[in-house]
C-alpha cells in the first residue's frame, strides 16, 4: 500500500529529548491519529514533516518526495492546521485569502467561499478577534480550498468544546469521501479517534510504541483484572504491563483470545480505551 508520509531512520537530538532512528509510514487514503503524553515528541515529528525542523540524520518523505528538496511542491499539496494562530492576527479573512490564494496554483475560490459559509466565518473581522474554534475553522477552510491531498494537524481539537469537536470530525469524514486523501493529526482527545481514525500511532519519549489499525487495537488489547495468586513467571509473560495492588492485579495484554484460553473465568477482561492504552504502554516503556 502507498504511503503518504515516510520517515527513514530519522534522528534528532535536543538537550533534554531525543528521537533516535525513528521509522514511520503513514498510509495514503486514511485517517491516522497520533497520540502520546505531553513531550512525547509529537509536535517535533509534525514539524519535521512540515520542514519547520530538520532531522540531524535520516530522511523524511511526503507524497514520496524528499524534504527539504521538494518542500515547495509538498507544501502546495498539503494543508497544515496548527494549534496556534499562524495568520497575521490583525488581518481579516478577506485580506488573508487575497494574500494566500495566489501562492497556490490549485486555489479554488468557490470552495473557499463554500467553507466560509459552512463554518459561519466572518470575512471582515480581524483574526485576533476570532475564538479558538473559529481560528481552527479558518485554517481548515484555507487548507481545504487548495484541494490539499494531505491534512496535517497538530492538536486541532485542543481547547474546543465537544459540539465543535464533533462538527470537526464530521468535516474530516466529508474530506475523506474523496479517494486518495489522507489526514494525519495529533490529539489528546482519544475518544474522537476510537470511532473515526483508521490507524493509531502511539508515541512516547520519541519512540513509536504502537502503530496499528484502530479496530485491531480495540478488539485485541484488553485490561485484565484478577487475583495476584494467578501470577507466576509463565503467566506474567502474557502481559505487556502489570500493576499489582495488595491482593489483585490489573494488566494490559495484546491478545484477548490468548488470555481467555489461559485464565478463562478466573479473570475479568475489559475492553480498552485509547487513554488506558497510552497509560499502560508508557508504563511498560519506562520499566
Amino acid at each position: 500500500m502507498e504511503n503518504v508520509i515516510e520517515f527513514h531512520n530519522v534522528s534528532k537530538k535536543f538537550a533534554s529529548f531525543e528521537i533516535d532512528q525513528l521509522n514511520l509510514k503513514v498510509k495514503k487514503g486514511y485517517i491516522t491519529g497520533f497520540i502520546g503524553t505531553n513531550g512525547a515528541g509529537k509536535s517535533t515529528i509534525i514539524k519535521m514533516i512540515m520542514n519547520i525542523l530538520q532531522p540531524d540524520t535520516g530522511d523524511v518523505h511526503v507524497f514520496g518526495l524528499q524534504q527539504p528538496q521538494a518542500e515547495k511542491v509538498i507544501k502546495s499539496r498539503l494543508g497544515f492546521v496548527y494549534d496556534q494562530n499562524i495568520f497575521y492576527p490583525w488581518l481579516n479573512l478577506q485580506e488573508i485569502q487575497k494574500m494566500i490564494a495566489p501562492t497556490y496554483p490549485t486555489w479554488d475560490q468557490a470552495t473557499f467561499l463554500h467553507y466560509v459559509e459552512q463554518f459561519e466565518l466572518p470575512m471582515k473581522k480581524a483574526i485576533k478577534h476570532f475564538s479558538k474554534g473559529m481560528q481552527t475553522k479558518a485554517s481548515l477552510a484555507i487548507a481545504l480550498s487548495h484541494h490539499a491531498e494531505l491534512l496535517i494537524m497538530d492538536e486541532p481539537t485542543a481547547g474546543l468544546d465537544p459540539a465543535f469537536r464533533m462538527e470537526l470530525m464530521a468535516i474530516f469524514q466529508q474530506v475523506m469521501v474523496e479517494e486518495g486523501r489522507s489526514i494525519f493529526f495529533s490529539t489528546h482527545t482519544t475518544s474522537d479517534l476510537e470511532r473515526y481514525a483508521d490507524y493509531i500511532v502511539v508515541l512516547d519519549q520519541g519512540k513509536i510504541l504502537l502503530h496499528a489499525p484502530t479496530d485491531e487495537i480495540l478488539q485485541n488489547y484488553v485490561v485484565v483484572k484478577g487475583s495476584n495468586t494467578l501470577l507466576d513467571r509463565d503467566t506474567k509473560a502474557h502481559f505487556i504491563h502489570i500493576i499489582q495492588e495488595t491482593h489483585t492485579f490489573r494488566a494490559l495484554a495484546s491478545c484477548k483470545r490468548e488470555i481467555a484460553d489461559i485464565f478463562g473465568e478466573h479473570v475479568v477482561m475489559e475492553n480498552i480505551s485509547l487513554d488506558e492504552l497510552i497509560f499502560y504502554l508508557k508504563a511498560a516503556q519506562r520499566q
Binding site: G29, Y30, I31, V177, R195
Partner: peptide
Amino acid sequence: RQLAKDLHISVIT
C-alpha cells in the same frame, strides 16, 4: 468512503 462518512465510522471498519 461514503458509507464510512454516513455512519460516522472509519474507512477501515
